[in-house]
């Protein structure tokens, strides 16, 4: 039992931090600009493909530096020539713009790299087993992802609260006119925020792509889980996103580790007939519903605490 708990906790933290790495850019854009970026997962995928391509030419380290730079630049262009134009038509238009953009990015990636999986590998200097617990190996690359996520988190907190740029960004959100009058270029601040957000997505892609599967369907497979992280954590709160990522990671991992179902507890009192809805509910295990628990969490949080766990504003 202790073994399962320790291993599940470890797996949960690793998965949670991966979620945070993927969602950090989204939460930045969502909380700073109010834009629900449906193309976020597409930039994540773009980062993975760019990372793969650059690592083929120049190695892994240049890949994780250059891929986010290129993707971030593209993101800034998207903001400048696309989002800014539709901004005046409201958030729905912005959101739908990113929706359409997701289609385009996916198709362009398929045009360049095709539809099959890329052979994007963990670099050899990180391809060893970092430590072993209960005979289960933990690869160094996972530890690297964990450390990297935490570094990103600390870096973002520092950037937003301790630097001049961060203060301007925060002020641009709440008092755009005032910031503009103080002589700052507010549209450019938004452009930079969007570029930064997309480059965070791309860096997550460039790192996670090597650990998982780099294929043109990886954005679609990710689904809306990242929105759950952002909303559950609370708008405008990096801490919230951080905690929500951990929470969701642990929730899913522990759910998977358990085989409980209603029939296991009450099976001796009642046994519904096969082929009825009650039977389906009776026999489903927590492990089976593990991956949908985050969505349940999302609905419950929004009903009972619309600001999210750490949010200060209403969603």
């Amino acid at each position: 039992m202790a073994e399962l708990i320790i291993i599940s906790t470890l797996n949960g933290v690793l998965y949670g931090m991966l979620l945070f790495l993927m969602a950090s850019g989204l939460t930045l854009i969502f909380s700073m600009m109010g834009v629900l970026n449906f193309a976020h997962a597409s930039f994540y995928m773009l980062g993975a493909f760019l990372g793969f391509q650059i690592s083929q030419w120049a190695g892994f380290i240049p890949a994780i530096i250059l891929a986010p730079l290129i993707a971030g630049g593209l993101g800034a262009l998207v903001e400048r020539y696309g989002l800014r134009t539709v901004h005046k038509h409201g958030h729905v238009a912005e959101l739908l713009f990113t929706f359409g953009l997701a289609f385009i990015i996916e198709e362009v990636i398929q045009m360049i790299w095709g539809k099959l999986a890329m052979d994007y590998r963990v670099p050899s200097f990180l391809d060893f087993s970092a430590f072993t617990i209960y005979a289960t190996n933990y690869p160094a690359y996972k530890a690297f992802m964990l450390v990297f996520s935490i570094a990103i988190f600390i870096g973002l907190i520092f950037l937003l609260t301790r630097t001049r740029a961060g203060l301007i960004i925060q002020a641009s959100l709440t008092h755009p006119n005032m910031v503009g009058m103080l002589g700052h270029n507010v549209p450019r601040v938004f452009m930079l925020v969007f570029g930064l957000g997309t480059s965070l997505a791309a860096i997550a892609g460039a790192i996670a792509g090597a650990a998982f599967v780099t294929q043109s369907n990886m954005a679609a497979l990710l689904g809306p889980i990242l929105f759950v992280v952002v909303v559950v954590g609370g708008l405008g709160s990096l801490w919230g996103a951080f905690v929500a990522s951990l929470l969701i990671g642990l929730l899913q991992t522990f759910a998977i580790a358990s085989d409980w179902s209603l029939s296991k507890f009450f099976g001796s009192y009642l046994s519904p007939t096969r082929g009825t809805i009650l039977f389906d509910i009776w026999t489903v295990t927590i492990a089976q519903i593990g991956p949908i628990l985050p969505y349940l969490l999302l609905v419950l949080v929004l009903i009972f605490r619309p600001t999210g766990l750490f949010g200060t504003r209403d969603t």
């Binding site: 399962l4 998965y15 289960t136 899913q252 991992t253 998977i256 492990a287 089976q288 991956p291 949908i292």
Partner: peptide, 21 residues
């Protein structure tokens, strides 16, 4: 004997932990 949701799992580590156990 395990079933997991179709095309929704990113990290199979928890499942592997169960297999190993």
């Amino acid at each position: 004997n395990e079933v997991h949701p179709l095309a929704k799992v990113t990290d199979f580590a928890p499942y592997i932990a169960k297999i190993k156990a």
